[in-house]
Design a protein around this nucleic acid. Structure first.
Lengths: 345, 345
DNA sequence: GATTGGCACTCGACAGTGCGGAGTGCCAAT
DNA sequence: ATTGGCACTCCGCACTGTCGAGTGCCAATC
């Protein structure tokens, strides 16, 4: 059983190791922290911590390094968020001031976070499942090509080019427009998708317009899927190269995950937040995502009536208190901005 | 003066060095190539090449390595494109078959290129400066928020949320729509932007609608700028981490350039293509872009009536014949696809 | 004049050696 | 439970000598 002091020793090890990137020995701990006991006593505690697999020694008779399990205990029980300096707070607010639109706001958010922490920053687009379709629009490009645009009441827009089977007159396009618009306008995106599915299931008319309506509706359904499917904005991948020694292996799995996005989306989706909306996934806990050498910390924010996450990706050996605090501060600020925006319309 | 055989020696050095990543000595050349002369003779040639600064020795009495200037001569005078295997050709065509839309096509293009070459692949969006505005659309979200959508006859769409000074009735929105639409519809994007600039210069009316028209027009002008401004799609940044030893320094400047995009756009814009539409920018030639350790090869393609580039970013020590051939093949294929698409409407 | 074989020389890579320091584990004493 | 002491382990570093690859130069040869 690990004593109370033993846990404090673990905390000291994590802090010093994050600080210096070198295995920390009993003597160092006595020097850098005020435990009021001798190195030998610390050694006894360390032996217990090692039994519990909270720390490990890279080589016989070398200092100790936290294990993934050790980091987990540290984050769950020992870490206190390190409050941001006022300079950092004001940096966030100036960085995020007066965004042009949602894209711009999220882009600035990740830039701010990566500057604040030196890690790769990630933000999910708010999930739009509660949004309603406010408008569908078609632009006939001539021939069989038509641009299909869907807009939600939260201001998000998706567009796609559809290729029809047959050529349409402009009058036909108007007919298609009113048919599809009637089907989805004003409905929440989920309900709109449902309505389109029902249309597809019903017996098909064979008129030229009817056929076009079906084709276009299918495209609209795909676009609605876009709204439900989360997307990511990221920044700071260059920081990985600088911090390369922190990853035992190569950083290429990380770069792949960044490029893939899907992996990160799944990972971020599966993490379980605490009562402050914060979550951390550490080292081998991410092994199934190919990120066994990395950690992710996230914070929830509220946007457009739904929840999404902002987070950081970095080495397992990261400064969790600082990073969690930064994520939380940015998430709170983001929620406030989106809330104002929401209520102002 | 470097003899004809001297140039062949340079070619051999480049080829072997790209192959093995080790400085190549006179003996190796004699073994791997059929020069029919002895190592000593090769050494004499190498001394001349060194005088011309086409090759250099990393250390006294070590094998030789091509300089940037050496690569330049190789690419300009000695390299012949290495034709793609038929397997590779068919890989391209299956990879690029049946794209959903332009975004999808370009995304697949970079994926194909990065798979083919193992380098970072980049493609510019076709420049839309010759495109015409086919449609502007507004969606009133309520209050002072309005989505402004601009569509060109090439099928490209840009949207942005505008915040107005004052609240508008739906009737006002209709008035704004017709005013702005009259201003720009049917015009090439450059002319449309011009028209808006003239509007801004003319004396302002003070009615609510007039003011809204000006605000919205300004937003439209911004969006037109989007069309003229090129954008990039990229893939394969993870390959950099694997090939890390090829870069003397860190790969972080490369990752930064990839994240910045602007740098790469400028670089690709400034490169001068040969009669096949191919271009290469080697090593220190890119120093002013922070990419002195890297090379970029590009090929031009025709899309939607205008020209754009597809390219590769990798270490200076890259396989230029293969990479140039791959870029050319993909560029040609892309041109063909976009041309078909163009003529089918 | 170009080419060649020979030869001395330089340098990097590598393995082996020895040493100092940091850190541990254990034990007997407190 | 805590502590100081002590033997032990192992890493990191500097130093050394050897080996091989490669060069540059020169006199001899075609």
């Amino acid at each position: 059983m690990v004593s109370e002091r033993g846990l404090q020793v673990l905390r000291a090890i994590v802090q010093d190791y994050v600080d210096t990137n070198e295995p920390v020995g009993s003597k160092t701990i006595v020097e850098r922290h005020q435990f009021g006991v001798s190195a030998a006593t610390i050694r006894n505690d360390m032996a217990l911590l090692e039994d519990e697999e909270l720390i490990a020694a890279p080589h016989t008779s070398s200092g100790r390094v936290p294990t993934d399990k050790g980091y987990r205990v540290f984050v769950d029980h020992l870490a206190e968020l390190r409050p941001l300096s006022s300079a950092q707070r004001s940096a966030i607010s100036t960085f995020l001031a007066d965004p042009v639109d949602l894209d711009d706001l999220l882009m600035r958010t990740v830039r701010a976070l990566t500057r604040l922490t030196g890690q790769v920053a990630i933000v999910q687009y708010p999930s739009f499942s509660r949004a309603r379709v406010s408008h569908v629009e078609f632009v006939h490009l001539g021939g069989t090509r038509i641009v299909v645009i869907v807009v939600t009441d939260t201001g998000r827009v998706s567009q796609r080019v559809a290729l029809l089977q047959t050529e349409l007159e402009d009058a036909d396009v108007a007919a298609v427009r009113s048919a599809v618009a009637a089907l989805v306008t004003g409905k929440p995106v989920a309900a709109a998708a449902q309505a389109i599915a029902e249309l597809s299931a019903s017996p098909a008319g064979s008129s030229r317009v009817d056929e076009a309506v079906r084709t276009v509706a299918r495209i609209v359904a795909e676009e609605l899927e876009d709204f439900r499917q989360d997307r990511l904005v990221m920044a700071g991948s260059a920081t990985l190269a600088r911090r390369e020694g922190d990853f035992r292996g190569s950083i290429s799995p990380l770069l792949e995950a960044i490029e893939e996005q899907v992996t990160l989306l799944r990972l971020m989706g599966e993490m379980v937040a605490d009562d402050q909306g914060l979550a951390a996934s550490i080292g081998r806990e991410n092994a199934s995502f190919g990120l066994g050498e990395a950690s992710v910390v996230t914070g929830d924010y509220d946007g457009a009536g739904s929840r999404a996450r902002v987070g950081l990706l970095g080495p397992t050996r990261m400064d969790y208190p600082t990073n969690l605090a930064a994520v939380r501060a940015v998430a709170l600020y983001l929620s406030r901005l989106l809330d104002e925006d929401d209520s102002s319309r």
